[in-house]
Each structure stands twice: as structure tokens, then as C-alpha cells.
Computed example of a mutant assay.
Amino acid sequence: MSDYLPLFPLKLVPFPGEQLNLHIFEPRYRQLIQDIKEGDGLMGIAVFLDQLKPLGTEVKLQEITKVYEDGRMDIKTIGTRIFEITTFDNPKKGKLYAGGMVVYKSNILKVNKALYDEFVFFLKEFFRLIGHEVDLTSSLVNSFTLAHKIGLKIEEEYELIQMEAESDRISYLIRHLRRIIPVMRELELVKSKIKMNGHFKNLDPLDF
């Protein structure tokens, strides 16, 4: 399935299902937001790293939370689906902002229970080590839900959206967690030793 989307290049990788709050200040993007507000509310966040990347994420405008006197605005959006850009018009004809034809990528959510349970196990350990409580009992937790919170580089986040199968994404995140959790455990041990060494100690005099 293909469509024509207004495109907003940004140096970030939004994920489907993720809330994304944006501060809009450039005139071209203020025009974009006004246009989608009056239309279907959809635009594409085109991922820009060292250059414009082929993949991006469609997001839906949920709310314009604040409009400033000078026209700037704060908006709330939510990621919907991943797309690949097939044509890029900068600017879109008759507009200040870019647009392009996109093809939506499939998103295969099926994953076997053993792999999913392993993923949740490592997530729990990661969040225990950083001292955050996260509810992982919900069936809504998938490979995208917490991916921005587990220390991925932006290039790794982009790798994640290139994968169409949930099992591939979860396997990728498990490998990442397997790499960083031992380092985090070592740091936790070091911190506990530093904390212990900071206390005053009562030392018995040695009897020579």
C-alpha cells in the first residue's frame, strides 16, 4: 500500500505506538501542522542521520497543546506505522514543507513465547539495575514499547525499524541487553564498594 505524506525530517527514530511530543517553530512546519489538522492528521517523520534515510515513521496528530503568540506550537502525536520513501519532493508543490510517496512496511507481530519470555526477563533485569519499576505484565509490551529507554544508539534504533518481523526485533534487543547488562552489574558492584568504603570504620588496634 502506498500513499503521499507530508514529510518532517528529524534526527530521531519514532516507533509505532510511541507518544512523540514536538515543539514546532519553523514556518514550513507550522504550515504542515495546520494542513494536517484540517486533513487526516497524518504526517511522516523522515529519519535524518548523516543524510535522509529511506525509512521513517508515520505519526498521527493527537493534539495541539499550545499555540504561542508568534505562531510556534507544542503538539502531541503518536507513531502508527513504518514506511519507506519512494519519492521525495522538497518542497511539496505549492507548500513550504517536503512531501513524498511512501510504501508502508509490514509489521509481523507474532513471536514464540520462549523468545518473548527471555526478552521480558532481560528487560526486568535492566530496569532493576537502573532502579526503575516498569510494568511488564501487559501484553501490549512489544519490541518498540521500551526501545528508547534501554540505551540504544540512534543508528541501532534505525536498524530496529528496518526489521519487519517482531521475532527479529526482539532477538536484536536481547543481544543488546545481553551485552550491556554484565557491564551494568559490574558498575553496580563498583558503586556498592565505593559506598561501603565511604563509611567510617571502627578499627581495633592491633595487639603486637
Rank of each mutant, 00 (worst) to 15 (best):
M1H: 01
Y4P: 02
P6V: 05
F8K: 08
P9I: 10
V13P: 02
Q19W: 04
L20K: 07
L20P: 04
L20H: 07
H23A: 06
I24V: 15
R30Q: 15
R30H: 08
I33Y: 11
D40A: 01
G41V: 02
L42A: 08
M43I: 04
G44K: 07
G44S: 08
F48S: 03
F48A: 10
D50P: 06
L55M: 03
L61F: 11
I64N: 03
T65Y: 05
V67H: 08
V67I: 14
Y68S: 08
D70W: 07
I75M: 11
I75G: 09
T77S: 10
T77I: 06
T80R: 15
E84K: 15
T86N: 07
F88I: 10
K95E: 14
Y97E: 05
A98M: 09
M101H: 14
Y104F: 15
S106E: 01
S106I: 00
N107C: 00
L109D: 00
V111I: 04
N112S: 06
K113V: 09
K113Y: 05
A114G: 06
L115M: 10
F119S: 09
F122R: 12
F122L: 14
F122I: 04
K124F: 04
E125C: 07
F126W: 11
F127H: 08
R128D: 15
R128H: 13
L129I: 07
L129P: 06
L129R: 09
E133F: 01
D135E: 04
T137L: 06
L140G: 00
L140W: 02
S143K: 00
F144T: 00
A147N: 02
H148I: 07
K149P: 00
G151K: 10
G151W: 03
I154P: 00
E156R: 06
Y158E: 01
E159H: 05
E159P: 00
E159L: 04
I161Q: 04
E164F: 01
D168V: 04
R169E: 03
I170C: 09
I174K: 09
R175M: 06
L177V: 05
R178W: 08
R179C: 10
I180F: 13
I180C: 15
I181E: 13
P182V: 14
V183S: 14
M184S: 03
R185P: 06
E186G: 03
E186S: 10
E186L: 11
V190R: 14
I194V: 14
I194A: 11
K195E: 15
M196Y: 14
M196Q: 15
G198Y: 09
G198C: 02
F200W: 07
K201I: 06
K201T: 08
N202G: 01
D204Y: 12
F208Y: 12
